[in-house]
Nucleic acid binder design. Structure first.
Lengths: 159, 159
DNA sequence: CATAGCGTTTAGTTCGTTCTAAACGATATA
DNA sequence: TATATCGTTTAGAACGAACTAAACGCTATG
């Protein structure tokens, strides 16, 4: 048990961890970002480890994930060879960008799936005319849905 | 190996399974829905089991999940005591409703978190004025973000 | 040059999810 | 009433994700 558990930063960080896991993200990533977000000064890896009661390995791995997202950045602190980090406070922008990126990637994969399935139907015909008609209709509908979602995403990607 | 693996329905179903797992859903649920979506006739549990090469337990559990979502429904077939199912073809509506519901639930939980953390700061003051100011600013920012997302969701929930 | 203090990498463990096989209860049929 | 055929439930296995502890390599400093 950490005697600092009542510390405001830590409380906030842990809530960010819960938030992250609710959206099926890694909760440690959420904790780390939350801690940095509520720190007026840059934080070293060892401080993160102590405050969040996590292992150094986990802190190291996950802080670099956050870094790759542009959610935190390394900062120089004089007279120290430790790595210090601070949060980019524009949380919403970060989240938004990540959500959009993720959706784009998955939608592209979806498109490939649809095309592949479609091609497999176009090949030589093993089905009755009626059955083939049904397949084509549903496939067409699937394609339409894909496009609706895609258009919606485009709309988002703007502004 | 299933000799029917080249069957169009099955190919489609498996792709729906992949799609589902891409969006961190249960992939069997995706397969089942995909199969029913591409079936002109209702499908029995045993047919699902055979065509998708899954266990009866899994089929039973997952088909009832789909049923609870309103994505498939039981239909009566004369002279049979099997349960037959067919898909509600309005896939997009189903997805949309589930997404909105899920977001609503999680946002409410988020709101509770923010309030809780906020209250813990409002309590007796253990921080310097400057530090407290910083905390309050960031907390305020967090609240604003919550509201932006919430408003966006409301907008969606309409139309 | 040895040591201490870093962050990273790795090997192994834990935990949650979801599957399967099998037991089960219910119902229709011979 | 005995049996066969359903769907459901349960116990256990498999798997993946993510953590920890420890080993490691690097660098600065005494």
């Amino acid at each position: 048990m950490n005697k600092e558990k009542n510390n405001f930063q830590i409380k906030f960080a842990n809530n960010m961890g819960m938030l992250a896991s609710r959206f099926s993200l890694n909760s440690t990533v959420g904790q780390l970002y939350g801690l940095l977000y509520m720190s007026p000064e840059p934080v070293s890896l060892n401080e993160m480890v102590k405050k969040l009661a996590i292992s150094k390995g986990s802190a190291s791995t996950n802080i670099r994930i956050l870094e790759s997202w542009g959610a935190v950045k390394k900062v120089w602190v004089d007279n120290s060879r430790k790595d210090y980090y601070e949060a980019d406070p524009n949380t919403l922008d970060i989240i938004k960008q990540r959500v959009i990126e993720g959706l784009h990637r998955r939608l592209n994969e979806t498109k490939s799936s649809i095309d592949m399935v479609n091609n497999s139907l176009e090949g030589k015909n093993r089905y009755s005319a009626q059955r083939e008609q049904f397949y084509k209709k549903r496939l067409q509908k699937t394609r339409k849905m894909y496009e609706q979602v895609n258009d919606l995403l485009e709309l988002f990607s703007k502004d």
